[in-house]
């Protein structure tokens, strides 16, 4: 039965592929590495709060974290849209759409993300800023916007392949049944194929969200003052690298673990009932 494939794939929260899956089940399954991490985190927090410069560290965190999250969320949001469009083009029978999307995916996946960000910052954004009419050109002169778009373009190529795999995992009979009821290709995608595909690809999508959070650190190379750049500047100014870099690393860890938990929750919430 083809339907079975969909469900078994979608009903596998236990063997989740999400970035850092923490089993929330019984204590007996509690992995020791999580406990050790929590203890290390508590110890570090203690050290930091008893240190003289802790106010400086706290400021660093709040400004750095908010920009890191801002960049991550917006870049991911746009990457989801770019990825969906490119993914749909990759499963399209139209050779022009297919070729364009394939070109995008292959080119982007062959270039390091850092190089893409720098290329966008030094080449594409100035080019666009010079050609866009007055009130809008400023948009391309903001490093934050540039970082967001560059990350989104880079991740869009990976997400396109995730979407494509999800769509192709849906048995052909689903499209046929929807079309036979009179739906157009677009309607069948919207109401029948994508809702099922999303459930299948939720774990890899969540995984990429966590990766995006980590890769947002790359935008420090184009002077986006997110957590990494803040940490770098503050630790240089205060000559306290140990405190600053430890807390920055811990913060990334807390954020990625937190996101993984959210992803796992969503995965369960949207599982197809059995």
């Amino acid at each position: 039965m083809p339907e079975l494939n969909v469900e078994t794939t979608a009903r596998l929260p236990k063997r989740s592929t999400a970035g850092r899956a923490i089993p929330v089940a019984g204590l007996e399954n509690m992995p020791w590495w999580v406990i050790i991490l929590i203890l290390a985190g508590l110890a570090a927090t203690f050290v930091i709060f008893t240190s003289a410069d802790y106010t400086s560290i706290i400021t660093l965190l709040s400004s750095g974290i908010s920009l890191t999250l801002y960049v991550t969320f917006f870049a991911y949001f746009f990457a989801l849209i770019f990825g969906l469009i490119a993914g749909l083009m990759r499963v399209s029978r139209n050779p022009v759409l297919f070729t364009l999307a394939t070109l995008y995916v292959e080119v982007i996946r062959g270039i390091p993300l850092l190089v893409q960000i720098l290329y966008f910052f030094y080449v594409i954004a100035p080019f666009l800023a010079d050609r866009v009419p007055e009130p809008f050109d400023g948009w391309f002169r903001s490093e934050v916007n540039e970082g967001i778009i560059a990350l989104a373009i880079g991740y869009g190529a990976y997400l396109a392949e995730v979407y494509r795999a999800g769509i192709e995992a849906i048995p052909r009979g689903q499209m046929e049944a929807a079309r036979s009821l009179g739906m157009s290709y677009v309607q069948a995608m919207r109401y029948v194929i994508l809702p099922q595909a999303i459930r299948i690809i939720l774990p890899p999508l969540g995984n990429d969200f966590v990766s995006m959070l980590k890769d947002s650190a790359l935008t420090s190379a184009i002077s986006v003052k997110e957590l990494t750049l803040w940490t770098r500047q503050r630790s240089a100014n205060t000559f306290r690298p140990l405190e600053h870099w430890t807390i920055a690393a811990l913060l990334y860890l807390v954020m990625t673990l937190g996101l993984s938990l959210i992803v796992r929750y969503l995965e369960r919430k949207f599982a197809i009932p059995k």
Binding site: M1, P2, E3, V6, E7, P171, G173, Q174, E176, A177, A178, R179, S180, L181, G182, V192, P195, Q196, R199, I272
Partner: peptide, 16 residues
């Protein structure tokens, strides 16, 4: 297709 219904061997119900 608006005039013709079809029933498949594998049912092809929408599982979601």
């Amino acid at each position: 297709r608006a005039e013709v219904g079809i029933v498949f061997q594998q049912f092809n119900l929408f599982p979601h």
